[in-house]
Computed example of a mutant assay.
Amino acid sequence: MKYALLIYDNEKNWALADDAARTEAYAQHGRFTAMLEERGAVRGGEELAPTDAATTVRDDGGGEFILTDGPYAETSEQLGGFYLVEAADLDEAIEYAKALPGAVVEVRPVVDHPAQ
């Protein structure tokens, strides 16, 4: 079953991080990705641009769309990236999430639609 590991953190901390801290964070994610690859579990993933680069599109219900700059929700932690993994079950997906370096990780099953 596929799971999305959604990574949340305070993006202000990332903006204030020095080069050494950023290099180490990327190295940690590289090691995490290598572990997933060894297990044949990685299906994708990407770092996301900061929330100030986001555009939110809302349907007003009447056929018109409202565009606003910024993220859908204002929170203290922002969605900064994700991994798409293959795991036998939720317990295995949670173990992967625990191995991610220092962040809040939401584990969410991906809906498996039958072939149409």
Score class of each variant (00 low, 15 high):
1 M>L: 03
3 Y>G: 01
3 Y>S: 02
5 L>C: 00
6 L>C: 08
7 I>M: 15
7 I>W: 03
7 I>Y: 05
8 Y>Q: 07
10 N>S: 13
11 E>G: 04
12 K>I: 06
13 N>I: 14
14 W>T: 15
17 A>L: 05
17 A>D: 13
18 D>R: 08
18 D>C: 14
19 D>W: 09
20 A>K: 10
20 A>P: 11
20 A>W: 00
21 A>C: 10
23 T>D: 13
23 T>K: 11
24 E>Y: 12
24 E>W: 14
26 Y>T: 14
26 Y>F: 15
27 A>F: 12
27 A>N: 13
27 A>Y: 08
31 R>W: 04
31 R>P: 00
32 F>G: 02
33 T>K: 06
35 M>L: 09
35 M>P: 07
36 L>P: 01
36 L>I: 02
38 E>V: 04
38 E>K: 09
39 R>W: 10
40 G>W: 08
41 A>M: 00
41 A>D: 09
42 V>A: 12
42 V>I: 15
42 V>R: 02
44 G>E: 14
44 G>C: 11
45 G>M: 06
45 G>Y: 07
46 E>P: 09
47 E>C: 14
47 E>L: 12
48 L>F: 08
48 L>R: 01
48 L>P: 04
50 P>G: 06
50 P>Q: 02
51 T>E: 03
52 D>A: 03
52 D>G: 04
52 D>S: 04
54 A>L: 03
54 A>F: 05
54 A>M: 01
55 T>M: 05
56 T>H: 00
57 V>N: 03
57 V>M: 09
58 R>G: 03
58 R>Q: 08
58 R>E: 00
60 D>L: 12
60 D>I: 10
60 D>R: 09
61 G>Q: 12
62 G>F: 15
63 G>I: 07
66 I>N: 11
67 L>T: 15
68 T>S: 10
71 P>T: 00
72 Y>M: 08
72 Y>K: 01
73 A>W: 09
73 A>G: 13
74 E>W: 06
74 E>F: 05
75 T>N: 06
76 S>E: 15
76 S>L: 10
77 E>A: 13
77 E>S: 11
77 E>L: 10
79 L>H: 06
79 L>W: 06
80 G>E: 14
81 G>Y: 15
81 G>I: 13
81 G>V: 14
82 F>C: 12
83 Y>G: 04
84 L>Y: 11
85 V>F: 10
86 E>P: 09
89 D>Q: 03
89 D>H: 11
90 L>P: 08
91 D>Q: 08
92 E>D: 01
92 E>G: 04
92 E>L: 05
93 A>P: 07
93 A>W: 02
94 I>V: 12
95 E>A: 08
96 Y>G: 02
96 Y>A: 01
96 Y>C: 01
97 A>F: 02
100 L>H: 01
101 P>M: 00
102 G>D: 14
103 A>L: 04
105 V>M: 02
106 E>Q: 08
107 V>H: 02
109 P>V: 04
110 V>Y: 03
110 V>C: 06
112 D>C: 08
114 P>C: 06
116 Q>E: 15
